[in-house]
Design a protein around this nucleic acid. Structure first.
Ligand SMILES: [Zn+2]
Ligand SMILES: [Zn+2]
Ligand SMILES: [Zn+2]
Ligand SMILES: [Zn+2]
Lengths: 167, 167
DNA sequence: CATTACATGTTATAACATAACATAATTGTA
DNA sequence: TACAATTATGTTATGTTATAACATGTAATG
């Protein structure tokens, strides 16, 4: 087994997410953004974002609704979907298509074309940015189509879950 | 405006799908595959594949169910979903996540990692293979994850629809 | 022809998402 | 301030997509 002394953990997208920093930054970022754009960071919107950033894992709309209900907000479906749409428009939330779930954005630069890496066993999801991961998409041969949005989701198994599998 | 004399149409993935060839090939391919693998290409399975390859566009499960009903088959949801799952397992059908729809595979080699290019206006979908389009995915920096499946969907507008937009 | 595996049928329900309309809060302006 | 316009939230109903659980039928194997 090879040892990498330098940058040993930079490639371990699942294990080394510094969520404490992530969490604090995220709240500051959204506050600043909303002020700058003159948008209303209402209690409801803030709560939805907090719910998503708290565990920083994908949640279904109805899980979010439950949590909203417990926090005293209305918990009828449109409430969640509307706020999620709004937060998605502004890049603070993404939808993970493969899970029908929503996740707080962990990319301060708001690359609106994130790549998600999804463990099929623990359902942990890592958001990776194009530049950091060299997940490159280019299409020189497609000339009759203008790409506006990309959905890239990589499903598989994380090393933790793989090691736990006895077979 | 530049003129390209050579290979002018190879890049026009939307306009130049030779579906007549595609259709004939697809039926032969699935028949051969099922024989080789000793699988049952039952009337139901054949019908579902025919429905999908006929127009060669994505269809929702319930659209497929309608067509099955009209063809004399049962049209309760599990019928469609089971057959679709089976055909997907064997690479003859893919799910287009962005549309919650299913599409016949147009890649004879059964590359199980297709890329879909989806026009948001006409909802036409082109399946493109990695080699033909140079849509390349590589992740040298991800070391703690084993990719088993990829979902790559590019949404935007095709040239036909763009030209039709008056603005 | 019995056993087993595979395939299909059926009913009910779960999970995900939106339409349409009502009310309330915020913002801009006379 | 009063008013209008805009934005945000609440509510009810319904539409859409997908699966669980169990029953029946059909094909392959020895
Ligand atoms: Zn985080
Ligand atoms: Zn895992
Ligand atoms: Zn075709
Ligand atoms: Zn189009």
């Amino acid at each position: 087994m090879k040892k990498k002394k330098k940058n040993e953990n930079s490639s371990k997208i699942f294990k080394y997410h510094d969520h404490e920093a992530c969490f604090g930054d995220a709240i500051t970022l959204i506050e600043d953004y909303f002020i700058e754009k003159k948008l209303q960071l209402t209690p409801l919107r803030r709560k939805v974002f907090e719910i998503l950033i708290e565990d920083h894992k994908p949640l279904g709309a109805y899980e979010i609704l439950d949590k909203l209900g417990k926090a005293g907000f209305s918990s009828s479906p449109p409430i969640a979907y509307r706020v999620l749409d709004f937060l998605m428009e502004h890049g603070f939330v993404h939808k993970v298509q493969g899970l029908n779930a929503f996740i707080a954005c962990s990319n301060p630069e708001h690359s609106h074309f994130p790549t998600f890496v999804i463990c099929r066993k623990c359902e942990k999801v890592a958001e990776v940015s194009d530049d950091k991961t060299r997940l490159n998409l280019s299409s020189p041969e497609i000339t009759d189509f203008k790409i506006e949005k990309t959905t890239i989701e990589l499903t598989g198994i994380c090393s933790t879950c793989e090691n736990a599998e006895i077979r």
